[in-house]
Amino acid sequence: MKIFRLAIVENDEDERFFMSEAFRASGKFEILGEFGNGDQLTEWLHGSSGELPELILSDLNMPGKNGYDIMDELKTTYPDVAVFATSTSSVVSTREKCIRAGARDFIAKPDIFIAYDAFVSELYQLACRYLGG
């Protein structure tokens, strides 16, 4: 089974905690880094000499560089890294906007952040589809 290298960008610490717990528990992802916003992420990417993540899961609303800024920036600086956007929005136009901005796809966050299991499975399927299992 393919294990994807993942970076998580989410400003809410509690949310990020439960999110990464679910990813670790699944055994399908290796979390290379957890960040509070785009500024922290890009700083880490630029400073990193090791392996890059295959995919980045990014929240949209964040202080400083937000999800859209990340998609916009990585499109040119790290075009090989797939960005998946997520947020509480269930509005169709949000997904369209993200894909226009450069995201591979958009996944709505679960209703409560202590139930990320289904979300993790969905992202795994999408990652396999887009990046090859």
Partner: peptide, 20 residues
């Protein structure tokens, strides 16, 4: 729409999550 779907929804979801 963007405000309601993100900014307002987020804290409600947080409250709900902690209640769960």
């Amino acid at each position: 729409t963007a405000i309601v779907s993100h900014d307002l929804k987020e804290p409600v979801r947080t409250v709900r999550s902690f209640l769960y």
